[in-house]
Design a protein around this nucleic acid. Structure first.
Length: 640
DNA sequence: CTTAGGG
DNA sequence: CCCTAAG
C-alpha cells in the first residue's frame, strides 16, 4: 500500500530516531549522531559487515544493544534489523494501524536491498550457522525492540516524549534482584527499568520472565527461580549470557548455546521460522517473523492489559518452554473473541507451520487453522474458500447450533436430560490432532535446514474446530494423512437410531435423520446408515454367543447394551424378511399404523409399528415371525 | 439429494 | 468415517 520509497525512508528515519538513539541515550553513549551514521552505513552496505568505530560505543551500551551489535557483525539478516527497527519507527510516529503493513513493507524492502548478500550468506554452509545464531540471538532482542510500539499503543504519546521518558534505567538494575520477591508493582518498575517502558501485564510469571530475559539477555530463563545478579540468573551457569558482550559472545559456539537454550521459546521459534523461510527461498507470507513476533507481543500484551482477569494463559504457556508444547487440545468449546484472536495471531506467528501444512496435502490450499465444519457436503470446491471464511462465522454457527441442540426439547425422545448428555459426551472424547512424527520430520527437512527441534504444538485451534467435531488424523496406508472428524456415538444416539429404524425401517435414513435426529445436527443420514451397519454387524457377531453383555473385554468404552444389539438384530431380521413383502405389496407409507399398536410397552411399540406397516395387516405373520419373539425378548431387557 | 456399498 | 456410484 505504501510506496517503496516511503518504506525506505522509514527505515532510515527509524535508524536515526528510534533504534539506537533511544537505547544509547540512556546509556553512556553521548554521541548519538554517530550511531545513525554507522548503522545507516551498514544498512546500505547490505552485508552489514562494515562496522565503524562505533564499536566501542556500542560496547558500552547495555545488553539490549549487544544483540544488535552482534548482528551487525555477523551481518545476519537485514530483515531482522529492519523488522526490529521498523518497529521503532512505527512507534515514533506511524499510526498503530499501519504498524503491520509498515513493518512488512519495510521488511520486504530491506530484504530486497540486501537480498543478494543475504542469500549468498545463506548458501554458504559455513556462514549459515552464524546466520542462524545471529538471527536467533537477534530475535531475542526483538522482544525489546518491539516493545516500544507497545508503549505507543498503550500510551499513545508522542515519539519524542517516549524516547525521553522510557529509556531503560539500568541504574535500578544493579546488584541482585530477586524477582520472586517482588510485587507486581515492583515488577512493573523493574520492567520499566529494564525495557524502558511500562507494562500493564499483571502476570507475575510473565513479568519475571520478561525481565529476566531482558536482564540476562537471554531467553534461557527458568521458570523456577528469578534471582538475578549482575545480569545473570544466579541459578544459571551460563557465563555466556553475561552482560559483557565480549568478543566471545559473537562467537558461534557461545551463540549456539544460547540458541539451544532458547529452543522452544516463541522467540526462538520465530527466528527459526524466518530462517527457514529465507533459506528455502520462499517467503510465504511476506510479513516477516519479526513483524509477526512484534505483533504477537503487542497483541498479547495489549490483550493482557485489557483483561486483567485473563492473563492470556495460553501465551504465557507458550512463552515458558517448560510447559509441554502439547496442549491437550481439550480447550473449552468456547471460541470467543480471545480464542479467535489468538488463532489469528498464531497463524501469523507460525508461517513455518503454514509451510508445513502447505506441503502437507500436496495441494497448496490446505487450511490449517480453519475449522472445517463440513457436515453437509460442501466438499472440495468449497474447501479452499472455507479457508477465508471468517472463522468467527463458522464458530458462531457452531455455537448457535449447539445452543439450539441443547435447548431443544427432544421431540419424541427420552428426556432433555438425555439430549444434554448426548451433547456433552462426545465433547469429552475430543482428542488433539495427531501429527505423525515422521511426517513432521520430513516436512521440516523440506526447508533444507533441519530444524532439529520440532515445531511446537501440533494442535491448533481447538476452540473452533473441536467445538463441533472431533478432528483426528488417521494414518493412511500410503503414509498420507486423512482427517477424520469423529464423534463417538452415545448410547442415546444409538437408541434413537434403533428406534428410528424400527419406526421407519432401515434404509429410510433421511427420514430417520430428519425425525429422530433432528436435534443432532451432525450425523448425516449416511452416518446413521453406517452406524446401523455397524450395529448390525455387532449384533450378529454377538448374538450367536450369548445374549449377555459383558461376556468379554470390550476394550471400547461403550459396549452397547446387549438389549440394543438384540433389538437391532431383530429389526434386521424382520426387515430382511419383510422387505420382499414390502416391495411386492403396499407402499411403505404409514398404512397399517393404527393396527394393534396396543402394547404400549415402550421400545416394543416401535417395532410393532414397523411390523404393522411392513406386513400390512398381517399381524399374525409378524407374530409367528421369529423376529417377533426376539422382539418380545428385547422388550424385557430393554430399559428404553 | 438420498441410498447403497466399498474402502 | 469418507468416497463414489447410482436412482
Amino acid at each position: 500500500m505504501e510506496t517503496v520509497v516511503g518504506v525506505e525512508r522509514n527505515d532510515e528515519g527509524k535508524f536515526e530516531e528510534s533504534g539506537f538513539e533511544k537505547s544509547s541515550s540512556s546509556l553512556s553513549s553521548p554521541k548519538l549522531g554517530a550511531d545513525p551514521v554507522v548503522y545507516k552505513l551498514v544498512r546500505i552496505e547490505g552485508d552489514g559487515r562494515f562496522v565503524p568505530a562505533t564499536d566501542d560505543e556500542i560496547m558500552e551500551v547495555g545488553n539490549l544493544l549487544a544483540d544488535d551489535k552482534i548482528e551487525m557483525h555477523l551481518v545476519a539478516d537485514t530483515g531482522q534489523t529492519g523488522g526490529c527497527i521498523s518497529s521503532e519507527r512505527t512507534s515514533s510516529g506511524i499510526p498503530q494501524l499501519e504498524n503491520s503493513e509498515g513493518l512488512s513493507q519495510s521488511e520486504n524492502t530491506e530484504v530486497d536491498a540486501g537480498k543478494s548478500n543475504v542469500l549468498l550468506e545463506e548458501n554458504d554452509p559455513s556462514s549459515a550457522p552464524s546466520m542462524n545464531d545471529s538471527r536467533i540471538n537477534q530475535s531475542g532482542s526483538v522482544g525489546e525492540c518491539s516493545n516500544p510500539p507497545n508503549e505507543l499503543v498503550e500510551g499513545q504519546s508522542s515519539a519524542s516524549a517516549d524516547c525521553t521518558s522510557l529509556n531503560p534505567d539500568f541504574s535500578k538494575l544493579k546488584g541482585e534482584i530477586c524477582l520472586d520477591n517482588l510485587s507486581i508493582k515492583e515488577l512493573h518498575e523493574t520492567f520499566k527499568a529494564t525495557f524502558g517502558r511500562e507494562t500493564t501485564v499483571k502476570d507475575k510469571q510473565w513479568l519475571k520472565r520478561r525481565i529476566a530475559m531482558g536482564l540476562t539477555n537471554s531467553c534461557d530463563v527458568s521458570t523456577s527461580s528469578f534471582l538475578i545478579k549482575d545480569n545473570k540468573l544466579v541459578n544459571k551457569d551460563k557465563e555466556e549470557n553475561h552482560n559483557s558482550l565480549g568478543s566471545d559472545l559473537a562467537k558461534a559456539p557461545v551463540v549456539r548455546t544460547v540458541n539451544d537454550n532458547c529452543n522452544d521459546s516463541p522467540i526462538n521459534r520465530s527466528g527459526q521460522m524466518e530462517n527457514l523461510q529465507v533459506v528455502s527461498g520462499e517467503r510465504l507470507r511476506n510479513s516477516s517473523v519479526d513483524d509477526d513476533f512484534g505483533a504477537e507481543d503487542l497483541n498479547t500484551e495489549e490483550r493482557a492489559a485489557k483483561r486483567v482477569r485473563k492473563p492470556t494463559r495460553r501465551y504465557i504457556e507458550e512463552l515458558s518452554e517448560v510447559e509441554s508444547k502439547e496442549h491437550s487440545g481439550k480447550s473449552v468449546a468456547s471460541a470467543k473473541n480471545s480464542g479467535l484472536r489468538q488463532i489469528s495471531i498464531k497463524s501469523n506467528v507460525r508461517p513455518f507451520k503454514m509451510a508445513r501444512m502447505d506441503s502437507f496435502g500436496g495441494s497448496g490450499v490446505e487450511v490449517p487453522y480453519v475449522c472445517r465444519v463440513r457436515r453437509s457436503r460442501p466438499r472440495k470446491n468449497v474447501m479452499a474458500l472455507m479457508g477465508f471464511h471468517p472463522i468467527g462465522m463458522s464458530v458462531a454457527a457452531t455455537l448457535v447450533k449447539k445452543a439450539i441442540v441443547v435447548h431443544n426439547t427432544q421431540p419424541n425422545n427420552e428426556s432433555g436430560d438425555e439430549a444434554l448428555k448426548a451433547r456433552s459426551d462426545p465433547e469429552q472424547i475430543q482428542q488433539p490432532v495427531t501429527v505423525e512424527p515422521e511426517k513432521d520430520k520430513q516436512l521440516s527437512a523440506v526447508g533444507s535446514i533441519d530444524q532439529g527441534k520440532n515445531v511446537e504444538p501440533k494442535h491448533i485451534d481447538p476452540s473452533g474446530d473441536t467445538s463441533d467435531e472431533n478432528v483426528v488424523t488417521v494414518p493412511t496406508g500410503k503414509g498420507g494423512m486423512r482427517r477424520k472428524h469423529h464423534r463417538a456415538w452415545t448410547l442415546s444416539e444409538v437408541t434413537k437410531l434403533v428406534e428410528g429404524v424400527s419406526r421407519y425401517g432401515a434404509g429410510r435414513w433421511s427420514e430417520i435423520k430428519r425425525l429422530a435426529f433432528a436435534s443432532y445436527s451432525y450425523r448425516t443420514s449416511v452416518d446413521l446408515k453406517d452406524k446401523w451397519r455397524n450395529l448390525l454387524k455387532a449384533s450378529l457377531a454377538q448374538t450367536p454367543q450369548d445374549k449377555k453383555i459383558n461376556s468379554r473385554k470390550h476394550a471400547s468404552a461403550m459396549p452397547i447394551p446387549a438389549a440394543i444389539l438384540l433389538r437391532v438384530r431383530e429389526l434386521a431380521e424382520m426387515q430382511s424378511q419383510v422387505s420382499p413383502n414390502l416391495s411386492s405389496g403396499k407402499p411403505v407409507t404409514s398404512a397399517g399404523r393404527n393396527v394393534h399398536e396396543t402394547r404400549s410397552s415402550g421400545g416394543l411399540m416401535e417395532f410393532g409399528e414397523v411390523n404393522s406397516y411392513k406386513h400390512g395387516s398381517e399381524w399374525t405373520d409378524r407374530r409367528c415371525n421369529p423376529t417377533m419373539r426376539g422382539l418380545s425378548d428385547g422388550q424385557h431387557i430393554s430399559p428404553f
